[in-house]
Simulated assay, not measured.
Amino acid sequence: MITKTSFPKKLKLFPSFFYLSLILFYSHCALRPSGTLSQYDSYFPHESTISSIPKGKVRATFFGTASILLDDGETQILTDGFFSRPSLWKTAFSKIESDPSTVQSVIEKAKIDRLQAIFVCHSHYDHVMDSPLVAKQTKAKLFGSTSTLNVGIGAGLLPEQMQKFQPGKPITIGKFTITVLESKHTPPFRILGKTNATDPNHPNIESPLKTPVKATDYIEGGTFDFLIQHGKNKILIKSSTNFVEGAFDKIKVDVLFLGIAQLSLQPIPFQEQFYKQTVQTLKPKLLIPIHWDNFFKPLSEPLEPNLRLGDDFDANMKYILKRTEEEKVEVQLLQGFETIDLF
């Protein structure tokens, strides 16, 4: 029975309960994937390439974000190598560091046994955090900006196992020739009142970074693209959804690994220029979207699209597929650990 005294108390509690329920509901929606991969099933190769790599061919293996292993059967090179992938809650509310057992398990599962070099796109944690440990466990050389090298120093890498980028100067590793190109990070965004914009007063990691540290301690330190030539074929790996106007005017590639995170959240003129300055200029035969996945999920589980909290995978893909269909550019998606022979 509701008494005269209890009814007002319940009435007062209702707004608090309502707003709490509303917050929980929207939080649940925001933390759901921003797309459904089954809609793009035909774009996945669905092949497990376990055969040896034919002579002269290059095989790519995808590990989510911008972590890509290139292998010609003799030499392996890696971009980023972000394998630990700490959870959203740990990243937001705690300090993070590489997980040695996870890194080693990925190295073993992917048969990373001929790795010569690791090239880091920029020094945010989802690109650089595991790179020094991968270098240690494989004896590969770490290539990066001053910020990336400070992460390496903090992890105990020796100077001879690291090399600072020299944009525009080709580096030969086995039969691969890698040219580092200066680029731009995806435009800054704001989530829950916080932004990932670089502080102009502190654009770099200025001293050795010893982990565990907060995710925000991993400062961008410049963003880079990688032009990779193997024989007559060329690959471009672009991790971030941004461009330097005219940077690719004299470049044509066979394969383009293109970062598409937050593409559809940008103004329409930006989207059009991004596509023009990348796909239309480079004229790839094959485009492979990267940095589309929720990197708070472990690699032991299938990749899922970025969270609704900060992206729209479906809208990103619809834009890319519409434009590439018009220009007859093949598009393929890759799951975690999935491989594809590029040429």
Rank of each mutant, 00 (worst) to 15 (best):
M1S: 11
K10H: 13
L20F: 02
F25C: 14
L31K: 03
L31F: 14
P33D: 05
L37I: 15
D41A: 13
P45V: 04
E47Y: 01
S51Q: 15
K57S: 10
R59T: 00
R59C: 01
T61A: 11
F63Y: 07
G64I: 03
G64Q: 04
G64M: 06
D71E: 13
E74Y: 12
T75D: 07
T75K: 05
I77P: 03
I77A: 07
G81D: 10
F83V: 05
S84P: 10
R85K: 12
P100L: 08
V103L: 10
E108L: 02
K109H: 09
K109L: 04
K111S: 15
D113Y: 12
A117N: 00
I118D: 00
H127A: 04
P132T: 10
P132I: 09
A135G: 13
Q137C: 05
G144N: 10
V151I: 06
P159C: 03
E160Q: 15
Q163M: 15
I171E: 12
I173N: 04
I173G: 05
K175L: 07
F176A: 06
T177M: 03
T186E: 06
G193A: 00
D199W: 13
P203K: 07
N204E: 11
P212L: 08
T216M: 04
T223K: 07
L236W: 09
S239K: 11
S239R: 15
S240A: 06
D249V: 09
K250P: 02
G259M: 05
F270Q: 01
Y275N: 07
K276A: 15
Q277C: 04
V279T: 13
P284T: 09
I290T: 07
I290L: 12
H291N: 14
W292F: 10
W292E: 10
N294R: 05
N294G: 01
L303M: 03
L303R: 04
E304F: 05
N306T: 12
R308L: 14
G310A: 01
A315E: 14
I320G: 02
R323A: 15
T324I: 02
T324C: 13
E325F: 00
K328I: 02
E338N: 04
I340A: 06
